[in-house]
């Protein structure tokens, strides 16, 4: 067993057990923390595949930004086990059935999938210069379109989040003055 294999198995064990922790822990804050650990383990896998750029971007974007916002929302809502809403039996049954169907699909696809082993020495597609060239030469159109999609999502969030009251209170003050 080489160092590579040992690292691979250790990281896989961490990733799987933390992913289980996400869905099994009762406290949502613990779930978020487990999810962050899962991202770290997956980043470790990227490093093993010599995709350092993907690894670090995974940490910056997911662990560093998105999970902070998740934590933000959960902290402000103050969720804990005592106030967890109790679901009806019908809803629970529906959850079990839909989850089971998804599990079947995943199982079927894994069973037929060919286990291709990555060549771990020669791949360097994840290094930043190669990734940049591929992204800005071959895939420039989908890249730009997805950035427009992000922009529209951002503008949409601002439009939804904008308060109407500011305007109404200002006009109310104006009316008050004119009276």
């Amino acid at each position: 067993m080489e160092l590579y294999d040992i690292l691979f198995w250790v990281l896989s064990a961490i990733a799987v057990s933390c992913a289980l922790g996400v869905i099994l822990s009762r406290n949502p804050v613990n779930s978020v923390l487990f999810l962050i650990l899962t991202f770290f383990a997956i980043s470790g896998h990227y490093v093993l595949m010599n995709a350092q750029f993907l690894a670090i971007v995974n940490i910056i974007v997911y662990a560093g930004a998105i999970m902070v916002l998740f934590l933000f929302v959960i902290m402000l809502m103050n969720l804990n086990a005592d106030v967890e809403p109790q679901k009806g039996q019908l809803v629970q049954l529906a959850g079990v059935i839909s989850g089971g169907i998804l599990f079947l699909v995943v199982l079927a696809s894994i069973k037929t999938a060919k286990a291709e082993i990555m060549d771990k020495t020669s791949t360097d597609i994840g290094l930043i210069s190669n990734l940049g060239k591929v992204l800005f030469k071959e895939y420039v159109l989908p890249f730009e379109i997805s950035s427009v999609l992000f922009l529209s999502a951002m503008i949409g969030a601002i439009v939804i989040g904008k308060k109407e009251e500011v305007k109404t209170s200002a006009t109310a003050k104006m009316e008050h003055v004119s009276e």
Binding site: F53, I56, V57, I60, A63, G64, V68, L71, F72
Partner: peptide, 19 residues
């Protein structure tokens, strides 16, 4: 070869301690 991004990643994690 991603030294600056590494620093950026660690900085973005730094907020967890405080939070």
């Amino acid at each position: 070869n991603i030294g600056i991004l590494f620093i950026f990643g660690v900085v973005s994690l730094g907020v967890y301690g405080v939070m």
